[in-house]
């Protein structure tokens, strides 16, 4: 079976700062991976490399067997055009820490925008699917509201519905609950739990250790641009092997 995401020695630098110093990771279809670690450890950067929002400098990164951002012919790499990169991104949903809903569109408009404009699907089909998705995240009655009229938790659930509307085979979550009031976190996590139960492949950058333990198939602990430790959530959380993991967990648990 091809891995959904395969990273081999992925490096990334911003100017003089090396953010990723060789990441190796393999995520199988239907797996839920939780990336944890101190801020500045490169978790978000790695996540953004997967859908080519950031370009990697060295190593190999592929999604569902296809290289990210490049095409290989013989032993030569060809950069993909903007259009081709966008084509591939359609299969990868992403949810941001700051929601990034389109404020000038209604909730329904946000969810329908990409399927209508990018994949060019019929409006009626998209509308039915969008309404179903909004119902699923519990916001059917907010369809005609603008994002500014929603709470943070509601906005994030709309953002999830928006990403799902493109029917992705992989979902990336970049600290989806970090900007939320504590009492709103639960609703968002519930939606994500439901997704995981349905077999969606997910990579989640999070500080919610409870969620990681309960839903995650694996916890990946990153620090200073490298993967320090990977394992079953129960093992990593209760019996960390490395000093750095122990130090981090003692602060967050």
């Amino acid at each position: 079976m091809t891995a959904m995401v395969q990273a081999e020695a992925v490096h990334k630098r911003f100017g003089n700062l090396e953010v990723l110093k060789g990441i190796d990771l393999e995520v199988a279809p239907r797996d839920v991976f939780c990336l944890v670690g101190p801020s500045g450890s490169g978790k978000s950067t790695f996540l953004r490399c997967i859908n080519h929002l950031e370009k990697i400098d060295a190593g190999r990164l592929s999604v569902d067997g296809e290289l990210v951002g490049y095409r290989q012919k013989g032993d030569k790499l060809y950069e993909l055009s903007d259009r081709e990169v966008c084509q591939k991104r359609q299969e990868i949903g992403m949810v941001f820490q700051s929601f990034n809903l389109f404020p000038h569109l209604t909730v329904l408009g946000n969810v329908m925008e990409a399927p209508c404009r990018v994949s060019g699907e019929a409006k009626a089909t998209v509308r039915a699917r969008a309404e179903k998705l909004l119902d699923r995240v519990g916001l059917k009655e907010k369809a005609d509201n603008y994002p500014a009229q929603l709470s943070g938790g509601q906005q994030q659930r709309v953002a999830i519905a928006r990403a799902l509307a493109m029917q992705p085979k992989l979902m990336l979550f970049d600290e989806p609950t970090s900007a939320l009031d504590p009492e709103l976190v639960g609703d968002v996590l519930d939606v994500m739990r439901g997704l995981a139960d349905d077999g969606m492949t997910m990579i989640v950058v999070t500080h919610e250790m409870g969620f990681a333990r309960e839903v995650g198939d694996a916890i990946v602990f990153m620090d200073d641009g490298v993967v320090v430790e990977t394992g079953k959530p129960r093992d990593v959380l209760t019996n960390p092997q490395h000093e750095r993991t122990k130090a981090f967990l003692s602060k967050v648990l």
Binding site: L53, C86, Q87, R89, Q90, N100, A114, M166
Partner: peptide
């Protein structure tokens, strides 16, 4: 970024 991530 959100627009790019949706494939626009």
């Amino acid at each position: 970024e959100a627009a790019s991530a949706l494939g626009m």
